[in-house]
């Protein structure tokens, strides 16, 4: 049975979380025009955004057909976001994360991925991993990732499922809070 599954799955989140935090800080300098009637103050169509980390290395790339920003609460809605995350520090797997919807809080301290959330590793340094859930909440500053619903982590030879994922990226502790089932095929 390979518990490396969970390690690879959550390393993905570390990359996503740190990259997102940097991207949302950079967003502060954007010129904002307040649009009347609650419409977005800006909308991006068919865009690709490359987020760089503090050293100028690619943290992740986000592609989406549409991003809208709500001036009232300063949150952002992203339609079918696709995150491409390179291996961290040149080691580990590259990851691809997709969802039907993405939402970013006003100050960028929370990223919510909703509906058909799927994270896949490319398997370059280990067996490929596929993480599936309907909700994934990322809190970069708190170094925390959570999902209140069912999460499944599939790899060749093992399937791990549970409800209520809680991960502390700082201490690397994780908890699957209920209904945990795992199946290992030798």
């Amino acid at each position: 049975m390979s518990w490396r599954t969970i390690v690879s799955a959550v390393l993905l989140v570390i990359a996503l979380a740190s990259g997102w935090a940097l991207w949302s800080d950079r967003e502060e300098q954007v010129e904002r025009t307040v649009a009347a009637g609650g419409r977005s103050d800006y909308v991006l169509h068919d865009f690709e955004m490359v987020a760089l980390d503090a050293n100028g290395n690619e943290s992740f790339t986000l592609r989406a057909p549409k991003l809208e920003r709500d001036p009232a609460d300063e949150t952002m809605e992203i339609v079918t976001p696709l995150f491409l995350i390179p291996p961290r520090e040149g080691s580990g797997d590259a990851w691809q994360v997709t969802a039907e919807h993405g939402w970013v809080s006003a100050n960028g301290d929370e990223l919510r991925l909703r509906d058909a959330v799927k994270a896949e590793s490319d398997g370059s340094t280990g067996a490929p991993v596929v993480v599936r859930t309907e909700q994934l909440n990322v809190f970069p500053e708190a170094d925390r990732v959570a999902s209140p619903v069912a999460v499944s982590i599939d790899r060749p030879g093992s399937i791990l499922r549970g409800v209520g994922l809680e991960v502390s990226l700082a201490s690397k502790q994780y908890t699957l809070q209920s209904e945990v089932t795992s199946r290992y095929v030798p």
């Binding site: 049975m1 518990w3 490396r4 969970i6 390690v7 959550v10 390393l11 549970g162 991960v167 201490s171 690397k172 502790q173 994780y174 908890t175 699957l176 809070q177 209920s178 209904e179 945990v180 089932t181 795992s182 199946r183 290992y184 095929v185 030798p186």
Partner: peptide
Amino acid sequence: RSKAMEIESGMQQGTLDD
């Protein structure tokens, strides 16, 4: 020993790096 192993539990806790 060559059969699949199925494990069920109420809760599971661990560390990401084993």
